[in-house]
Design a protein around this nucleic acid. Structure first.
Length: 868
RNA sequence: GCCGAAGUGGCGGAAUUGGUAGACGCAGUGGACUCAAAAUCCACCGCCCUUAAAAGCGUGCGGGUUCGAGUCCCGCCUUCGGCACCA
């Protein structure tokens, strides 16, 4: 019960390098009844693809398990269908991956992409958001970085949902103070922070916003809604400019990165909302950075205390109203207020007792406050928590106080409520592909979406389909598509989307425990799960590792497994990265060229100045350095190295190159050294074994040199065990073994005990290297005289505490923190004697030069620092 | 833009809990062996000044804490991973 290692699930789907299929130039009739068929077809086309590592759940015989799970989730409401916005390639009429949309890195850019809403299937992962978040606290064997990323991704936030009544009439200039100067704001302030007036009966349903900063509510100067918001669409009906803006928002990627980095743009709807506390009218804008998918698709904008709102307000000349001051500012004003309050103590009393404050009552305080407000207006939002001002009844409260007071107020009149919101969105599992596991749904005009009954599962793909150019062939295959409704028996159509391959990577580990099971897994799963040690790339820190945890909980709730989490210990490897090279195809797409086919040109300082294709010597563009991937064609095949040096050398080399959690730019320089090390090791063992007797170490009679080598042997055993077993630091484990080999080679004692110590050293090294170089270790174990036993059956060596005992230590001696010499002291030496020896050290004495040290710091076993 | 990492010689990297920066390996330089080459072995190998020694400088940049900082704190820069359809 030990280690499960994920296999390359990239091999699940159709290989991206199969250009014939991607470009729809494959034979018109394509038989792909199952993966085996597809492999044969690809082989016939000359694509050598090794499917032996393929994970089996993409095979039709496993469809039934996923489909059965899906139909059960569908009936429980955990799987549902809704419209979702995707990146659409209008030229190829296909869904684009976000990767393909980003300018300079992918195939398509801005204008060539549009957003399109298509119906998609989702798994309700958000129903498990809280459990997925809390579960992270019970995963001590996971890296903190991954847990932090998952916490942030799930993004639990507490806030208020607040309703703003919408007015039909266009707002006039009188509604909100337009000026952004402090004087104007002050003037405005006197105009009204009056009692909230009740919204009148409205033509339009109230607009609900979610905010985590209700303390800034009185600073709201506009509302922003998503381009897809119903209110925006309604406004577009009568206003062509708004319709044009919404259309503009339909272009550009759907990726969060695109939205966050895009220029902030907006347009006034002409509609206004009524502030629920002040009763003021605030304009409603459409903004490209507000997403329909997040929260309610509408936000309250507080430019004084949110940087994005500030930028938007500055750009469109919307008012900025300060309603929170920093605690430092509050304290400063309090001081000034105290000074100025000989007669009227209102200011300090207010600040001290949380009553209404008016900083403008004190001339000195006014200056300070005005300065603060000016800095907000001119330099940017103040986004930290602080004390409320300009907020009527709420003046003087802090964040928590304002939150509670406003929550109570809105909950009382039903115009708002406390709410926990998650950033996490439901998992879209539909893919518009013609391979993979079909989604077992039938659409009936009368009954709607109906799950295929379990006894009719699995739904399999048709044997023969015809490519029709741009669409998934099964969508055009009316014979397969047309069916009857399982409920009413009427004419109906099958869902033609298939599942995302993240589905397979979410349960393969569980299936591995139960080969041949008739259900997804059987009782064997509970013996093996959770996995003790899982290893995977850091690029999966969020999506795969979250879906995978979610799926495990689904399996648990189906009664298939009895644990809460799939994996106890997680090691995330860094990426192997490599440079990318490409040529523009002239249609916005790029042809990616493998680094092996490229000649990199360098100047005399070894800086890269250009690159050309080896085959035609014509220049190619140099892209960014990225993780190796099929889509960027920047993978390197270690097979040529294996052919030249052997698998053990290549394994040793890749383990030695860097610690596993660090990313590494692949470079074959250095493999020669690994080969050299293994050859030396081989020679050392064979030379030693030429002498057939293997004397046993007698600790009592060892001389100093023998003791010293033996100590190094056992220190190495201890270090390698810790490096491999606890630290996953294979590179330093190998370095320690190299040092031990160097020491052993220098050790030329041919006496009986000399050979005994050498034998122990070499035998230990063979055992310690076995996990990394199993072939050579296996052979050398035999060479060392173990003809009858296998190294695979040996116990891992254990450090002998007797061998580790040391008599003396070397201490570094610093003068004023600078290293000036070292001293050799007995392990048990007293501090006083160490101080005396340190001061007596010639180099140290020179720097002390007769001065009396102010302080001598002795850190046992490490260092002495003499402070002058 | 946001979240998570990383930045140390010519190169990959080491320094595990704040305690001798550069282990180990590559590349390089000099030497031994050899008719010669390969292989192997020995020595040197951060920067600066220098015949040499000594001193000084040095872990992306700018500050700070500490007897002592690659390691901790504050502010930046650059690179990599993720940002929901690459998987």
């Amino acid at each position: 019960k030990n280690v499960l290692q994920p296999m390359g699930w990239d091999a699940f789907g159709l290989p991206a390098e199969n250009a014939a299929i991607k470009n729809h130039t494959a034979p018109a009739k394509w038989t792909y009844a199952n993966i085996e068929h597809m492999r044969a077809q690809l082989a016939a086309l000359g694509y050598a693809i090794d499917w032996s590592r393929e994970f089996a759940t993409c095979r039709p015989e496993y469809y039934v398990h996923e489909q059965r799970l899906f139909t059960r989730l569908f009936k429980k409401g955990l799987a549902y269908r809704k419209n979702s916005v995707v990146n659409w390639d209008p030229v190829d009429q296909t869904v684009l991956a976000n990767e393909q949309v980003i300018d300079g890195r992918g195939w398509r850019t801005g204008a060539l992409v549009e957003k399109r809403e298509i119906p998609q299937w989702f798994f309700r992962i958000t129903a498990y958001a809280d459990e997925l978040l809390r579960g992270l606290d019970d995963l001590p064997g996971w890296p903190d970085s991954v847990k932090t990323m998952q916490r942030n991704w799930i993004g639990r936030s507490e806030g208020l949902e607040i309703q703003f009544a919408v007015e039909g009439a266009a707002h006039g200039s009188a509604s909100v103070a337009q000026g952004r100067k402090p004087e104007a704001t002050a003037a405005h302030r006197s105009a009204s922070l009056a009692q909230g007036r009740k919204p009148e009966a409205n033509e339009t349903a109230p607009l609900t916003v979610f905010t985590t900063r209700p303390d800034t509510l009185m600073g709201v100067t506009y509302l922003a809604i998503a381009a897809e918001h119903p209110l925006a669409l309604k406004a577009a009906q009568s206003k062509p400019l708004i319709a044009a803006f919404i259309e503009e928002c339909r272009h550009g990627g759907t990726a969060e990165a695109d939205i966050e980095t895009a220029e902030k743009k907006g347009i006034d709807t002409g509609l206004t909302a009524i502030h629920p506390v002040s009763g003021e009218s605030v304009p409603i804008w459409i903004a490209n950075f507000v997403l329909m998918g997040y929260g309610t698709g509408a936000v309250m904008a507080v430019p004084a205390h949110d940087q994005r709102d500030w930028e938007f307000a500055t750009k469109y000349d919307l008012p900025i109203r300060m309603v929170v001051v920093s605690d430092a500012m509050r304290d400063a004003v309090r001081e000034l207020g105290r000074d100025a309050a000989r007669n009227s103590d209102a200011m300090s009393a207010a600040l001290g007792e949380s009553r209404a404050i008016d900083p403008y009552e004190s001339g000195a305080a006014l200056g300070v406050i005005e300065e603060f407000e000016r800095s907000i207006i001119e330099d940017g939002a103040y986004t930290d928590y602080g004390t409320l001002v300009n907020s009527g009844d709420y003046d003087g409260l802090d964040f928590r106080g304002a939150f509670d007071a406003l929550a109570a107020r809105f909950e009382k009149d039903g115009s708002g409520a406390r709410r926990v919101n998650f950033r996490l969105r439901d998992w879209g599992v539909s893919r518009q592909r013609y391979w993979g596991c079909p989604i077992p749904i039938i659409y009936c005009a009368k009954c709607g979406a109906v799950a295929v009954p379990e006894e009719q599962l699995p739904v399999v793909l048709p044997e023969d389909v015809a490519f029709s150019g741009v669409k998934s062939p099964i969508k055009a295959d009316s014979e397969w598509r047309n069916t009857t409704c399982p409920d009413c028996g009427g004419a109906a159509e099958r869902e033609t989307d298939t599942f995302d391959t993240f589905m397979e990577s979410s349960w393969y580990y569980a299936r591995y425990t139960s080969p041949g099971a008739t259900d997804m897994v059987d009782a064997r799963a509970n013996y093996w799960l959770p996995i003790d040690q899982y290893i995977g790339g850091i690029e999966h820190a969020i999506l795969h590792l979250l879906y995978f945890r979610f799926f495990h909980k689904l399996l648990r709730d189906q009664g298939l497994v009895n644990s809460d989490e799939p994996v106890k210990n997680l090691l995330c490897q860094g990426m192997v990265i490599a440079e990318t090279f490409y040529r523009d195809n002239g249609d916005g797409s790029k042809e990616w060229i493998n680094p092996a086919d490229v000649e990199v040109l360098r100047d005399e300082k070894a800086r890269v100045v250009g690159a050309s294709l080896k085959s035609d010597a014509q220049p190619v563009h140099i892209g960014s350095t990225e993780k190796m991937s099929k889509s960027k064609n920047n993978g390197v095949d270690p097979q040529s190295m294996v052919g030249k040096y052997g698998a053990d050398t290549v394994r040793l080399f890749s383990m030695f190159a860097a610690p596993p959690d660090q990313s590494l730019e692949w470079n074959e320089a250095g493999v020669e050294g690994m080969s050299r090390f293994l050859r030396r090791f081989w020679r050392e063992v064979v030379t030693h074994a030429a002498n057939p007797d293997h004397p046993v170490v007698d600790v009592a009679v060892l001389n100093a040199a023998q003791k010293s080598l033996r100590r190094q042997v056992h220190e190495t055993i201890r270090k390698v065990s810790d490096d491999i077993g606890r630290r996953y630091a294979f590179n330093t484990a190998i370095a320690a073994l190299m040092e031990l080999l160097n020491a052993t080679a220098r050790f030329d004692d041919m006496s009986e005990q000399g050979r005994a110590v050498r034998h122990e050293a070499l035998e230990s090294m063979v055992l310690l290297l076995n996990p990394v170089t199993p072939h050579i270790s296996h052979a050398l174990w035999q060479v060392l005289g173990h003809g009858e036993t296998l190294i695979e059956d040996q116990r891992w060596p254990k450090a002998d505490p007797v061998a580790l005992v040391k008599d003396t230590l070397t201490l570094a001696v610093q003068v004023d923190g600078k290293l000036r010499g070292t001293i050799e002291v007995a392990v048990s030496e007293s501090t006083d004697e160490i101080e005396r020896l340190a001061l007596a050290q010639p180099k140290v004495a020179e720097f002390v030069a007769g001065q009396t040290p102010r302080k001598i710091i002795v850190v046992p076993g490490k260092i002495v620092n003499i402070v002058l």
